[in-house]
Design a protein around this nucleic acid. Sequence first.
DNA 1: CGCCCACTTGATTAATATCAAATACTGTGG
DNA 2: CCACAGTATTTGATATTAATCAAGTGGGCG
Lengths: 255, 255
Amino acid sequence: MSLLSGKRSPLLRKLSNFSTFDADETAAIEALASEPVPYRPREIIIEEGERPQGVNLVLSGFACRYKALPDGRRQILGYFVPGDICDLRVFVLEEMDHSIAAVTAAEVAVLPAEEIRQVTARFPRITTALWWATLVEEAISREWILNMGRRSAGERTAHLFCEIYHRLKAVELADGGRFTFPVTQQELADALGLSVVHVNRTLQLLRRRGLVDMENGTVILPNLEALEDYAMFNPRHLHLRERARPDASAPLETT
Amino acid sequence: MSLLSGKRSPLLRKLSNFSTFDADETAAIEALASEPVPYRPREIIIEEGERPQGVNLVLSGFACRYKALPDGRRQILGYFVPGDICDLRVFVLEEMDHSIAAVTAAEVAVLPAEEIRQVTARFPRITTALWWATLVEEAISREWILNMGRRSAGERTAHLFCEIYHRLKAVELADGGRFTFPVTQQELADALGLSVVHVNRTLQLLRRRGLVDMENGTVILPNLEALEDYAMFNPRHLHLRERARPDASAPLETT
DNA sequence: CGCCCACTTGATTAATATCAAATACTGTGG
DNA sequence: CCACAGTATTTGATATTAATCAAGTGGGCG
């Protein structure tokens, strides 16, 4: 992708929020995303129970993890935005305990385990950056638990928009309080643990308060500060401070 | 600890659910837990914003992760049982985005990063097992999101008891449908995202249905199968199948 | 045009929170 | 052993939040 446009790939843009890379490292990161596989909206990428084939890297569009209860209730567990890697070390486990699907039209690259192994063996700084990405994803999961458990419908919805906004901004896909996020209210409901009807009313509330507007798949946050305040959003959990850091602190870099 | 009693440490018991270890590996795992630090109930182990000192390994008792909102609402994000390691790669991040505290009286060992690095450098099978443990914890987090989002108060409570039971069983601290779990209803409320009063009523409901009994800090599950059914509990997400496996599949084992 | 799908609205019900008070239980000092 | 304080549990009444049911509306598109 970077070859075509001269622009940095979303993965590189994302990892640059944690570390800076020299030319070799940059080339190695850019080389990871081999051939993009296109998915249509809602198309399943991997399903619960399957054995994972490779490590998926989202290049464009949105995807999500989700889980369903035997009686049909469905819960989205998290979103993937461009630059996100789904389960770096998924091969340790025998089978998926949840599913991953495209939310919108999306392009996903499948990285062979061996390729990741080689890159991480050669570039410790990339290894650390990949761990950082994994740890941030875990932190987001924890925030979701707090979200579902202790935030009201309005706060929870607002919080989700703050999260997506900051994540998209980190890969240069959002700015000025607006971003493309074409999801139905049903999908929001599944992500927020609410009913569709209630999502609809909650969005109206946020709109009335001038916190969130949605038109045509674009989310507009006219007053980000007020929104973050209302949602009690603390960007700390995204660990996005831009800076170079030494990579000596990483344990677990083994032979 | 294993020196005192001749019994296997909880960490070894836990990892044995994933892999079998030879004498050297066993010794290395047993040597990890140096000196236990005692904590009193509710004592904070690490607080949000702090820089982590080392990797914590729970030897006895229960601990939890939690997060609080600025207005005081509190949410427990997960429990630690003996054998659990809190954040293997925590050093990658600069500061904690949540807190960890003892729930009951507990003993915790602090593992220096360097020690972990050495053990994992020498024993790839241990490395893989530690990853497995980390991945299981992530899977549990995801299940909690489903729990909070889509399960009713009763189902959610039941599900938590199923989870703790299976986890304790994996370290030989539960059997025959009973285990020690001395938590207050307020703490359950913070874990389940409910009010105390509602937890109380939910427990009464479960008791009336013969699914859960609690007396004196001991939880009794008189009919585990019915409970799991009611909670729609699927043990798959704990990835606890007992078996030896090759460790060749692990990516990211780098220099 | 007409259909499908998403969105919206209103009315009602169910789940859960909040408030307030009463009852048990635990440990402590006398 | 008792009295007491403090905490945890239980109960009842009421309010709030969110789900459900049912019926529109509206836009894109074959």
